[in-house]
Each structure stands twice: as structure tokens, then as C-alpha cells.
Nucleic acid binder design. Structure first.
Length: 1119
RNA sequence: GCUCUGGUGGUGGAAUUGGUAGACACGCAGGACUUAAAAUCCUGUGACCUUAACAGUCGUGCGGGUUCAAGUCCCGCCCGGAGUACCA
């Protein structure tokens, strides 16, 4: 009987489905093993041969572990929300749910043909309300949580509220310099907290929630009409579709992943993922250690001169200014005696500085204020003794706004007015005058630096164009220049900015800051080489020791003070900067003579000691934007009541995606969900209109597979504890900084909140390499260039046919060997041709013509080949040729529909069978390696399966006997058991296939048809080629599926040899082999080798200096 | 630029701890079977030199080094692929 793969494969696929052979047990005495493939997005293009590569590897692992006695969880499902289906919906009007359903069906058919051992009862789809109910539920948990930096974990928001109620907020609960949002949060007391209204409380809590609504610069993609997360933007354009992206300040739902930056980094050390992937995550998180350092502004011109529109005295909170003003007027008349005493001494510039009284600052009214010096003087009456705490808070708030506050009691003033005035005068004189402070702003520029050691080499400070102080500090003369520059910088797309990194641009603000150590004035510049989103958006420029600062300084002719003398190399500071962390400090006061490392430590210590800043860790990682202005995603379970976002209660979930008339934004630019009719919470409150991003559903799906049908929890705690996390995760490396970071983040948060017991989603992760396509390309000349090409060919005397000179010739296609020999590459471009039109680089002209006709390109095109032309359907031959060889050029590139180079697994299954496909994809090479697809070797693999089949058959009859196997048969088998086991354990699937071939070749030679041998061989093969294994297993008389048959156990005894053929080398060169008993001692081996006949020839009469004997390996004679 | 990763016959690749480089497969060449083709089977196949045969020389991107012994370890370079990029 012949090997008919088609019948066999259909039969077993049906049988497995019917018997639920691969169902994972939730209650099992067996140890668990969880193998997972990365969640596929069911695209309209279906699977190509690259997709199953990882699925086959994971399936082999799953089947192998079942043989090894594990309870295996090996599920599959679909990440079925996403942009492509929605884009398609916009174009065609088809509901994305419909196209998604079709695509999933197609995927499933393709997957089924390959014979995977998935437990389909656990299938999940992110777009299913039963699934996204729990995505929404998790969102709510994150909304109701904050990251407690003291305990280093996420906690319910209630623990934060408890802190606010007892301690208030002192500004120290967020020690991480990220997210930008925390900056504005003003400290408050417990009393304040209790007095805040619901809106204010909600606003404050928003600064802490793990899922929060906040304002931040986001990647706005106008073409897609939505914002994108950082990992969805590549080279300044959207990853999907390649549309331009710009920076935009928007209110967005975000995830506070930055709070987990350190844990995400540390966790990498404990998981077995590929180095390159861990490295990518480390880079993305981008931890750098350094210090923050404050540069105080030096007094500048008056507000008018500075061109500040708002008068300097307008320091009050605008929201309550009118009320405060009224109070201030009223307070001004009935002054206390003490206040009046002071006022008489300070009014009318008596101290040399202008003082105002009863002046509104923020939400308070200050008794006396000197704006120039940023000084507030408060006179406390007796009643204030009782409210000391409130005064302290008041001081804290005023200081937060950048003021210095000094207090005197009524008694002090009355008893010794002169001392009080002297004190005020002293403080005024010792306080440098400060610039106008913006609302809530500071009179200091804070920079982040990793090189505090170079602080004495600062020659200027540079701000990002978006920096909040830009408007405030710019002088009148520079106003115009700065405005122009900032406007230009803001309107540039990210792509333009990135493409333009070598052009140096910037502008001087006219302002100066004071060097924190030397007190010297340092000019403040604006430059777009400083990024608003990193650090503080401001840098201290040390041009001698930083390349970017160097270029900037050179361009604008700024000084380059050197503070490090390199000791390891000669360096020419006239040419470029010395950026290495190496050398001795010079010109640096207390740092002189130290080496860089010591200087960094010392500088940080000094900065902290003088209160100028702090040692700080900075992360490049940004919070993840979570809202998308799109339709096809999970609705965010939030509604707005009186402007306050509220989350839904558990029993109100899922919030089902509503129907809309169009999948486009509204006329007002609101997201598509705003179109939904009567879609309001309790009929009156608007729901959130943005939806969740693609990575929401995939950030926890591995948990859902543990308990896919549960309606009461995302997964039962008991089951989550049993399955824990993924033992082997296989997928592409393209998810390194997206999905794989987010899923780690959610896992950690869910663990902190006590819902699961593990801290990482996957213990081991393998990246399968990409399978590239081989494209076929032909050379095309179009438009005006084609006339030039015609001239060219006429001069070359290639064209003999008059008609070819026709002016209306549009497209010329030129056979690639002509292009190469005539060096025509610059005159046109290579365009893709469907690979099925091409055979051995020869393009089928008739099929190519049909394609041209379809695309309306056929008329007036010419195909030029060495043998003649094809013009408007006619073949014109040169020199008696009868055939045109229109040659294409092959090129390896990404496999994609648009490049006409897609190979589907279905075609291979049809032609060779699923088992051959599985073996061949593994045989191609190491799993991790990328490789172009070709079917060159597939006949070898198909031949192997036929040979395997023939071992069981003789003369068309099934023929297996029960005789005792020979020693050599057992040796072949056990050698193979050892190799295959080792191979699987180290994920070397390609060598397994080779080893199967060797095994079958040997058994063929031995004419082995012994049941004992073949039966075990089948189990070995079964993970790789399950259909043929099941069929032959059944033929051997088994009633049960092979899938749980015990994996053969290797027995060393069968491999023991009596003798070994020692390669004998002389000075490392192998000369001959000699058979010696394995029982011999090294000394005996040495003796026998030296006595051997051939040895004399290579000794050339000399005595051996040394003989090395490695038992059962090699003998080396040194002459 | 930085980080990761790779470089072995005509091709895909093997060599797991330093121990016979090129397993296995494709391709190619020759042969058997066949009217023929397909399928199948057998033989050969790194390069060079040489031969009747043996034997010999070179050989894992390049240049050094360590070692009795290096594709494998160390140092310095070259080239390809991927990721990332004014990240202070």
C-alpha cells in the first residue's frame, strides 16, 4: 500500500477534533506544561508559510511534553480587534465584525490543515464581549489602583486616599521623573484634602491611578485619525500604513507603565528570553543614572521689556482672582497695628525694593510681598498661634509657587520694629532678584544630567522649544526670533525633525541663569536637539564633553571650556568633544584631580548637600497612551458625570461596542463612538468615546486560556495558580517593545493586586526567525524616461521596427540581463511580478501581458529582450530567434501580498501534505534564524516520509514482525532516541529531522521491520509528523491515539562499543585511523599507536616528544 | 553612532564541553530499471595538485594570539541582517 498523505491527514484531523484528543485537563495529577504562540491578528491575507514556523515548533513541544507525561495547555485564539479591519470597513462599509469573522474562518481552515494539537475548546477572541468584559474589568482595577513607591507595588487607590486623609500630600510620593503630569501637583494637607470637592479630588487622584486621564504629548496620526503609542511609531511614521505622525498635546487615557520601569528592568534577569529581546527592552526602558540640578534665573529686564503680556503683579489664581481681590480690598483698611507699623517702613520703596500689601498669590492673600525678590512677609496675629498647621501649609504652597516666606508675630513687630525691618532688609539683599514667575511655575530651570562631574564645563543651558519657561524668560529683543523658532519647530512633523538631525538650529532667549557653583551668568538657548519628552526638557550644555552640545556651541560660536583631561588617549578639542567617561578633572574647583567616576559621585554629593538638586534615575520609557480615536476596539468602561470620569460597576460589564452609522469621526472631529445613537450611561451621561488600543486584549490573554469560559472571573484563582504562567512562548521579535512589555506590566500589576500568583507572563521565550519571500522583479521605464530609452535603443541598433518610435510608448520593460550589461539601473525601477508567472527567472510573457491588460498598462508598452521585442501583442524577433527570454531578477524581501511573493501553507499541504510541510519548515534551519523561503529541499523531506512508510510495508502488504531486534538495530534506535531528546530539549528542531533521516536510512539498510524498533521510532517521529505516526501506530494494532504514548527511554547500554577507530594525528594533522579496544588504558593506547606500522612513516625517524590520548576521541603525537 | 545577531562547499545547513570540518538534504554528474517520462534505486561530488592507484597541499570573512589540538577560546579589523537613535 502506498503512502496517501491526503486521506491519512484528513482522517486524523477529523478524529482528533471528534475525540478532543488535545484537551487540557484542569484537574490532573500530571505536572503542567503551558506552550503558547503569540496571539495572531487575523488579517485578510491569511497565513503565509512564515506564520506556521513558530506554531509547528510549539506544536512539536506540546506533543513531546504529552509523550513525556505532562498535562499540556496549548491553546490558540485571535487578537481580533484592530486597525486593518476598520480601515477596510471605512473603505467598503462592511462591518469590521463581519470581515473579522471571515478572516478568522480562513485562518482556522488553514491552521486545521497543518494538524496542530490545539485545545480549541479554549479559543478566545478579543472582540468577543465575553472576553472584553474582562479586559474592561482589568482596566477598572488599574483605574482603581496606584503605585505605592514605599511598598514598591500597586495598591488599591483607597490606601492612597487614606494617606491623603491623614497626612495630605507633601510632594514626595512620586520620586520618578517621568510622565510630566506629576510636575504640577501642588502639595496639600489632610485638612485641605477634606475640604476639596469631588472634582478636585478626582483630578488629584488622576495623577496617581495606573489607568488615568491625563494631558501629554502624544503621537497623533492625522491619516489614521488616532493617537499611537510610541512602539506603534517607527521612523516618525505609523507602523501600520506608514502615515506621518506629529506631536500633539492631548487629553488621553494612559497607562502609568513608567511606575514599573525598574521592575520591568530587573525582571529581565530572571527570565529565559533571548538576549537580543531583553536588550531591546532594556534600551526601550532606557534607564540612566545622573542628577537633577537647578539653575536659578538671573534678574532680567522688567516685564514690559520682556514683552510678557501679563502684568507681573498678577500672581493670583485666575479662577478666584475676583473674589480674592475683593477680600484684599476689604482687608486693606482694617489693618492690625503691627501690620501698619511694618507697612509704614516698607512702603514707597523705602528699603530700595517695591513692596505691596494684601496681595493675592495663588489662592491666598499675602500680607506683604516684594515681587522682585520673590519675598512674602507674613505677620501672624494671636489667632494664628492656634492654626499653626494651616500656616505651615500656607508657607509650603507659597514656596511651591517659588516664593520665600518669612513670618513675624504681632508681638515681635510691636516690641522691636527695627529688628524686624533689618531682617527684611537683610533677606531682600541676600536674595537674588528673581524673574517673573508664571502661574505655578518656578524661577529655576531644572536640568537632568548623567555627567554632573562636568558641571564646571557648562557654557550654556538649552531648553526644548516646548519648554514651559520659554515664554516666561525670553527678553523683548529676542521675542520675535524665539517665537519664530518655536513655531517652526512645533509645526515640523516627527519625521522631518528626525530626518534633519544634522542641521543645527536654535535661538538665544536673551535670559541668563546663575551657575549653581560659580554664580557666573550662563546664557539660556532654545534648541530642538533637546527633546521635551525626556528628562526635564532642559540640558546643561557642556560642549567640550558632549558631542551634541559641541556641535551646537561651534555653530553658534559659544565657548568650550574643558574640564576633563583625557588620560587614555590624545584628544584634539578643536575637532570634537571628549565624551568618554574617562580622564582627570581640571578647572573644576573641588573636583580637580579626581577621575570621572569619583567626580560624578562627589558632584552628586555636593549638589545634594547644597540643596541644588538630587541624584536621580531617569527612564526613557513613557507612559503608554491607551485611548484610540477609533471604532474597532474595546470601549473604555467610563462615563462622565459633571465632568468627572466614573468607571462602571462590575455588574454593568461588559460595556458593549455600540453600532454606528459610519466608522468615521463626527463632523466635530469626535471619535466614531460619538455617532452611536442614545448611547449614554443611564440615558444621561456620556460614555468615553475612545476605545482601547490593540495591545489591551493581548496583555492578559495568556490568563484567559487557563479558564476561557469563566463568566465570573477572568480566570478562577485556583486555575491561575495551577497553570501559573507560560513555560514556552514562541513568536516574532517585532513585539519586543510593544506587546511583550505591556503584558509584563499587566502581569505585575495583577500580581500586586493579588489576582494571580506570578510576576512574569512567560518563563522562556523564543523568537522564531522571519521567513522572507523571494520576489521576482522586472525592470520598468515609464513616462518621459521611456522616450529617452527608445532613443538609447535606437542608437544601439536594437530597434529595427519603425513602429517602436511611436511617441505614445508609455512603459518599457527590459529584460534584466540587458539592464545589467548596459547599466541602465538609474533610468527606471525594478517592479514586482507575481512569482507564479516566473520560472527560473524567465517571465511568462503571455501571463504578464494579461496582468498589464488588467491594470490598464498594456497599451503602448514594449518588452525588450535580447532576442527581440514584444510590442502591442506582437512578437518581433531579432537574428532568427523564435523565443523571447524575458528575464526577471530575484530578490529576497518581506513576504507580502503587495509584493506578489506570498507562498501559502495550503499549497504545500495540497502538494506534499501537512507532515511534509511541518518537517520541511523545521528542516530549513535553526528556528531563530531568518531565512528566505524556497522549496528546493522539500523533495528530500517528502522522500523521507515515503521511506518511513516503506519500513512497514513489503510488497504492498503491511509487514512488521515481532522478532528480537539485532544489536545494530537497537544501536540505531537508541542513538536516535538520545539525539532527538537532546534536540527537542534545546529547541534544535532542524537537526532532529536530519537525525530521523539517518535513522530511517540505517534501518532501511538493515532491512529492519521489527515491531519493537518501529513502534518506538513512531513515538519519536510523532511530534514532528503526527498524521503518519498515528496511522502506522493504528496499523500496529493500537486502539488509543499515539499522542500520549510514553516517549522512548534512552539506554546507554546499546551504544557501548567494543572498539573505537582512533584518528591518529601528528602535530595536529590526522594521518590514519586505528581500531583499538575501548577497554584499553591511555597508556596502552599510546603504546599500540607508537607500535603501529604507519606511525614510523610520520615520525620520520624522530622520537615523539609527547603523545596525547583522549579516550574514545583522538590520539595526537607531537614530533 | 550604539546594541544585538550572523559570516562554514554550487545551495539550505551540521559539528552540543576545544578533539577526524562539511553530517543530513537539495543541486549537479554518471549508472540501473523503463519504449519514454515520472517515481525508485546505486555511485560520485570542498578546492588545488597529481595519479594507474596511493599519497600530498590548502581550506570555516580577514590579520594576529593561546593550545599537543581552534569553525569553537582571546585581541584587532572587514562585511551582512535586525533593533534603536540628537535620550543629555
Amino acid at each position: 500500500m502506498e503512502y496517501h498523505f491526503k486521506e491519512i491527514e484528513q482522517k486524523w484531523q477529523a478524529r482528533w477534533a471528534k475525540d478532543k484528543t488535545f484537551r487540557a485537563e484542569n484537574n490532573s495529577a500530571k505536572p503542567k506544561y503551558y506552550v503558547l504562540d503569540m496571539f495572531p491578528y487575523p488579517s485578510g491575507a491569511g497565513l503565509h508559510v512564515g506564520h506556521p514556523l513558530g506554531y509547528i515548533a510549539s506544536d512539536i513541544m506540546a506533543r513531546y511534553k504529552r509523550h513525556k507525561g505532562f498535562n499540556v495547555l496549548h491553546p490558540m485564539g485571535y487578537d481580533s480587534f484592530g486597525l486593518p479591519a476598520e480601515q477596510y470597513a471605512i473603505q467598503t462599509g462592511q462591518h469590521p465584525a463581519v470581515t473579522t469573522e471571515q478572516n478568522i474562518k480562513r485562518y482556522r481552515e488553514q491552521l486545521d490543515k497543518i494538524g496542530f494539537s490545539f485545545d480549541w475548546d479554549r479559543e478566545v477572541r478579543t472582540s468577543d464581549p465575553k472576553y472584553y468584559k474582562w479586559t474592561q474589568w482589568i482596566f477598572i482595577q488599574l483605574f482603581n489602583s496606584w503605585y505605592n513607591p514605599r511598598n514598591n507595588k500597586a495598591e488599591p487607590i483607597s490606601t492612597l486616599i487614606a494617606v491623603f486623609e491623614t497626612e495630605g500630600f507633601k510632594g514626595s510620593d512620586h520620586n520618578i521623573l517621568t510622565g510630566d503630569i506629576e510636575k504640577d501637583l501642588v502639595p496639600f494637607t489632610a485638612t485641605d484634602w477634606k475640604s476639596f470637592d469631588a472634582k478636585k479630588r478626582s483630578d488629584i487622584l488622576m495623577h496617581f491611578r495606573l489607568a488615568y486621564l491625563g494631558e501629554a504629548y502624544v503621537n497623533w496620526c492625522p491619516a489614521l485619525g488616532t493617537v499611537l503609542a510610541n512602539d506603534e511609531v517607527k521612523d516618525g511614521v505609523s507602523e501600520r500604513g506608514g502615515h506621518p505622525v506629529e506631536r500633539k498635546l492631548m487629553k488621553q487615557w494612559s497607562m502609568r507603565i513608567t511606575t514599573y520601569a525598574q521592575r520591568l528592568l530587573d525582571g529581565l534577569d530572571d527570565i529565559d528570553w533571548t538576549d537580543s529581546l531583553k536588550e531591546a527592552q532594556r534600551n526601550w526602558i532606557g534607564r540612566s543614572e545622573g542628577a537633577s540640578l537647578e539653575f536659578g534665573l538671573i534678574p532680567g529686564p522688567s516685564p514690559k521689556e520682556k514683552g510678557v503680556d501679563k502684568p507681573r503683579w498678577q500672581t493670583a489664581d485666575p479662577a478666584i482672582y475676583d473674589i480674592l481681590k475683593k477680600y484684599a480690598r476689604e482687608n486693606r483698611r482694617p489693618q492690625t497695628e503691627a501690620e501698619d507699623l511694618v507697612w509704614q517702613q516698607v512702603r514707597n520703596n523705602k528699603l530700595g525694593f517695591k513692596f505691596r500689601r494684601q496681595h493675592a498669590v495663588g489662592t491666598y492673600i499675602a500680607d506683604f510681598i516684594c515681587l522682585e525678590k520673590g519675598l512674602i512677609v507674613e505677620i501672624d496675629g494671636e489667632i494664628h498661634e492656634l492654626t499653626k498647621e494651616r500656616d505651615e501649609n500656607r508657607t509650603a504652597v507659597l514656596e511651591q509657587l517659588g516664593f520665600k516666606v518669612i513670618r513675624f508675630t504681632n508681638a515681635e513687630v510691636k516690641q522691636n520694629i527695627n529688628d524686624v525691618i533689618a531682617r527684611i532688609r537683610e533677606v531682600c539683599n541676600s536674595t537674588p532678584s528673581q524673574m517673573e514667575r508664571g502661574q505655578g511655575g518656578e524661577a529655576k530651570i531644572t536640568v537632568f544630567t548623567t555627567r554632573p562631574d562636568t558641571v564646571f564645563g557648562v557654557s550654556f543651558v538649552t531648553l526644548a522649544p516646548e519648554h514651559e519657561l520659554v515664554d516666561v524668560i525670553t527678553t523683548a529683543e529676542q521675542k520675535q526670533a524665539v517665537n519664530d523658532y518655536v513655531t517652526k519647530a512645533k509645526n515640523r512633523s516627527e519625521r522631518e525633525r528626525q530626518a534633519d538631525v544634522n542641521t543645527i538650529s536654535g535661538v538665544f532667549t536673551g535670559a541668563f541663569v546663575e551657575h549653581p557653583f560659580t554664580g557666573k551668568p550662563v546664557p539660556v538657548w532654545i534648541g530642538d536637539y533637546v527633546l521635551a519628552g525626556y528628562g526635564t526638557g532642559a540640558v546643561m550644555a557642556v560642549p567640550a564633553h558632549d558631542e551634541r552640545d559641541y556641535k551646537f556651541a561651534k555653530h553658534f560660536n559659544l565657548p568650550l571650556p574643558q574640564v576633563i583631561e583625557p588620560t587614555s588617549a590624545e584628544h584634539d578639542f578643536a575637532k570634537d568633544a571628549w565624551g568618554e567617561k574617562e580622564g582627570k578633572l581640571i578647572n573644576s574647583d573641588f573636583l580637580n584631580g579626581l577621575d570621572v567616576k569619583a567626580a560624578i559621585k562627589k558632584a552628586i554629593a555636593e549638589i545634594e548637600a547644597r540643596g541644588l538638586g538630587k541624584g536621580k534615575v531617569n527612564y526613557r520609557l513613557r507612559d503608554a497612551v491607551f485611548g484610540r480615536q477609533r471604532y474597532w476596539g474595546e470601549p473604555i468602561p467610563v462615563y462622565y458625570k459633571d465632568g468627572i470620569p466614573q468607571v462602571l460597576a462590575d455588574h454593568e460589564l461588559p460595556l458593549v461596542l455600540p453600532e454606528v452609522d459610519k466608522f468615521l469621526p463626527t463632523e466635530d472631529g469626535e471619535p466614531p463612538l460619538a455617532r452611536a445613537k442614545d448611547w449614554k450611561y443611564k440615558g444621561q451621561y456620556d460614555y468615553e468615546w475612545t476605545t482601547m488600543p490593540g495591545w489591551a486584549g493581548s496583555s492578559w490573554y495568556f490568563l484567559r486560556y487557563m479558564d476561557a469560559q469563566n463568566e465570573n472571573a477572568f480566570a478562577d484563582k485556583k486555575l491561575a495558580d495551577y497553570w501559573q504562567n507560560v513555560d514556552l512562548y514562541i513568536g516574532g521579535s517585532e513585539h519586543a517593545t510593544g506587546h511583550l512589555l505591556y503584558v509584563r506590566f499587566w502581569t505585575k500589576a495583577l500580581k500586586d493586586l493579588g489576582f494571580i500568583g506570578v510576576d512574569e507572563p512567560a518563563k522562556k521565550l523564543i523568537n522564531q526567525g522571519m521567513i522572507q519571500g523571494t520576489s521576482e522583479k522586472v525592470f520598468m521605464v515609464t513616462g518621459s524616461k521611456s522616450q529617452i530609452a527608445i532613443e538609447y535603443f535606437r542608437n544601439k541598433v536594437l530597434f529595427t521596427h519603425q513602429g517602436l518610435y511611436h511617441k505614445s510608448v508609455r512603459n518599457i520593460f527590459i529584460s534584466s540581463e540587458i539592464v545589467l550589461s548596459e547599466k541602465l539601473e538609474d533610468g527606471g525601477e525594478f517592479v514586482n511580478v507575481p512569482i507564479e508567472f516566473v520560472n527560473n527567472n524567465i517571465v511568462d510573457i503571455e501571463q504578464f501581458k494579461l496582468r498589464l491588460v488588467q491594470n490598464g498598462l498594456f497599451e503602448n508598452s514594449i518588452i525588450v529582450t535580447k532576442q527581440g521585442y514584444f510590442y502591442n501583442g506582437e512578437y518581433l524577433f531579432l537574428d532568427g530567434n523564435t523565443e523571447l527570454l524575458f528575464r526577471s531578477r530575484s530578490e529576497v524581501e518581506k513576504m507580502s501580498k503587495s509584493k506578489w511573493n506570498v507562498q501559502t501553507p495550503d499549497e504545500i499541504c495540497e502538494k506534499f501534505g501537512a507532515d511534509t510541510l511541518r518537517l520541511y519548515e523545521m528542516f530549513l534551519g535553526p528556528l531563530e534564524q531568518s531565512k528566505p523561503w524556497n522549496t528546493n529541499g522539500i523533495t528530500g523531506v517528502a522522500g523521507f516520509l515515503k521511506k518511513l512508510w516503506r519500513l512497514f510495508y513489503a510488497g504492498g502488504e503491511f509487514n512488521v514482525n515481532d522478532a528480537e531486534p539485532t544489536k545494530s538495530e537497537l544501536k540505531t534506535l537508541h542513538k536516535t532516541i538520545k539525539k532527538i531528546t537532546d534536540d527537542i530539549e534545546r529547541f534544535s528542531f532542524n537537526t532532529s529531522v536530519s537525525n530521523f533521516m539517518i535513522c530511517v536510512n540505517e534501518l532501511m539498510e538493515q532491512k529492519c521491520n521489527k515491531r519493537v524498533i518501529l513502534e518506538q521510532l513512531l513515538v519519536l517521529v510523532s511530534p514532528y509528523a503526527p498524521h503518519i505516526a498515528e496511522e502506522l501506530w493504528e496499523k500496529l494494532g493500537h486502539k488509543e491515539s499515539i499522542s500520549t504514548a510514553a516517549f522512548p527511554v534512552f539506554n546507554e547500554a546499546y551504544l557501548v562499543e567494543d572498539s573505537f577507530s582512533y584518528p591518529v594525528s601528528f602535530n595536529g594533522k590526522v594521518r590514519f585511523n586505528i581500531d583499538l579496544a575501548t577497554t584499553l588504558s591511555p597508556q596502552e593506547v599510546e603504546k599500540l599507536v607508537l607500535e603501529a606500522e604507519q606511525t614510523q612513516k610520520y615520525l620520520e625517524g624522530k622520537a615523539p616528544k609527547k603523545v596525547i590520548v583522549v579516550p574514545k576521541r583522538i590520539v595526537n603525537v607531537v614530533v
